[in-house]
Design a binder for these strands. Structure first.
Length: 269
DNA sequence: GTGTCATGCGTAT
DNA sequence: TACGCCTGACACG
């Protein structure tokens, strides 16, 4: 379930357990055997996320770079450790903790300096919220004629948004997904950036994506909401818009589904 | 048990 | 634009 908030949360929670600790590294599945061997017995210096990427820096200068893709998953485990699944690409263990990684798109060893090459291909990350983030985001969009709904998934424009957040952010701001990115007003771009910061940081803290304002659903607190009550648009096609009752519409942009409210997010005139 | 789908993305066409 | 990759949850029988 990996949008950017998941990786930042993983970096924070794993960092608490592994930073400064010597770890055993292995790859039960075998596909990262050489990489695991290169960091086995080394000390973790830091674990950091950027966009949907996470980097483990070790005291020998090497780093492990992971991207979860659509299916990848981390599990944090404590003793007694369960038998690792044969799918485990990477296990990092101390006597007290273990992180179990399965199904990543990327799990690779990086030499010193190579982390920067990955970062150079990423736009501003709302969770990091650099001071020039809104400007960089706006500059990236200003060059693009593609729909705003597509541009939001371009990790060079903004790093960390995925398919859930894109539907939700556009809904909240009443923005039609098909408006060309460069035609979106700068004021709305700034709002998109600020909302991304707020929503991803909220998601990082809770570990799940909740965008609805509880007062628009019922009096329950966000943490008590059932799945399906936490979002405005994502995967709600045919269900009534929480704001106006119009059935939520769905379509595809670039082979990926997107959901929106035809009334609250009207097409540009 | 089998089939489908998914919060992603690189590469080929 | 289409396909391949990687895993797991869920619907269906």
């Amino acid at each position: 379930m990996p949008e950017g908030h998941v990786l930042h949360r993983a970096a924070r929670l794993q960092g608490k357990r592994f930073n400064g600790r010597r770890v055993a590294a292995e790859s039960p599945q075998g596909r990262f055997a050489d990489g695991a061997a290169a960091v086995d017995g080394r000390t973790v210096e830091s674990i950091d996320a950027r966009g949907k990427h996470i980097f483990y820096r070790f005291d020998n200068g090497l780093a492990v770079h992971v991207h979860l893709g659509l299916f990848g998953k981390f599990r944090l485990q404590t003793p007694p450790f369960p038998e690792p699944s044969l799918n485990a690409r990477l296990l990092l263990s101390t006597d007290d903790d273990r992180v179990h990684l399965a199904g990543p798109t990327t799990c690779e060893l990086l030499e010193p300096g190579e982390i920067e090459e990955v970062l150079d291909n990423l736009g501003p990350d709302p969770i990091v919220a650099p001071s020039d983030g809104a400007d960089r985001f706006a500059a990236a969009l200003s060059r693009r004629t593609v729909p705003i709904g597509r541009a939001l998934l371009d990790q060079k424009a903004i790093a960390g948004l995925g398919n859930v957040y894109r539907s939700e952010l556009l809904f909240i701001l009443g923005l039609n997904p098909f408006i060309p990115a460069r035609d979106v007003d700068r004021d709305l771009i700034d709002q998109l950036w600020k909302l991304s910061v707020d929503e991803l940081r909220t998601g990082e803290k809770s570990g799940r994506i909740v965008t609805v304002d509880p007062t628009e659903v019922d009096r329950r607190r966000r943490s008590d909401m059932k799945r399906g009550e936490r979002l405005y648009a994502y995967k709600r096609q045919g269900e009534p818009c929480r704001r106006c009752g119009t059935p939520i519409a769905s379509s595809e942009i670039d082979d990926r589904n997107i959901w929106w409210c035809p009334t609250c997010q009207p097409a540009a005139n």
